[in-house]
Amino acid sequence: MAKVVVVTSGKGGVGKTTSTAALGAALAQSGKRVVVIDFDVGLRNLDLVLGAERRVVFDLINVTQGVAKLSQALIRDKRIEQLYLLPASQTRDKDALTEEGVGQVIAELRTKFDYIICDSPAGIERGAQLAMRFADEAVVVTNPEVSSVRDSDRIIGLLDSRTLRAEQGETVRKYILITRFDAARASRGEMLGIDDMLDILSTPLLGIIPESEGVLRASNVGCPVTLNEPANPAARAYSDAARRLLGEDIPMALPVDRRGLFDRLFGRRAA
């Protein structure tokens, strides 16, 4: 049965689009039929991160307004089979997106795909609410930073009240995905730790994505990090997170602090 997953956060710049691309790619690489939808009307970027920016003809709003058929707007990834992109409109008024239109598109996608991943815009306005509206599950992307944790808490509140599932008395299954984590800084008490964040947000953990240069390299070339550098720690963390989404029981590998006892005692930084 198809699952609709929203990737959301409240705060901008924490890695929603990167995570959507990486999780979508990892799920498709494991054989699932996946479509990723960009809900950021006017500021689309998922096309760029996936390297499909020059192939956009029609977009989500074209489809909801009946200007284009869904099959015309879907862009098939050239590298990963069964990975498709439904881009956001770059030009139109964001009010052009309606709940009814989005509902129809998602209903049609449910018949064709295993995973429908909705990349939410930042904020808690209309676009973000429509992105989460039809979700079965939610990935709340959080940085180890006070503003991000606060906004995640707010978004979790909205997932529990403003989604269709919540209104029907069901729940949206929620996960925290911690991105840009630096284990060394956390161990020195300079950064919120994993337990701190899970404790505060009281939501299960989907994965810990370490801060990594490979993430920027991947977006530079328009390729999901799981495909561009499969051995990169961030890529491995995304692949593990995708397998947990599929229901597999993968032990959580904390990005290890490799400093020895001597360095710890004298507070030296890892090279």
Binding site: R150, R154, G157, A186, M191, I200
Partner: peptide, 20 residues
Amino acid sequence: KRGSAPVARERLQVLLAYER
């Protein structure tokens, strides 16, 4: 153990308890 993380944690706990 020193560091600013415990301060962040405490501030968040107080704030979110109120906001919730």
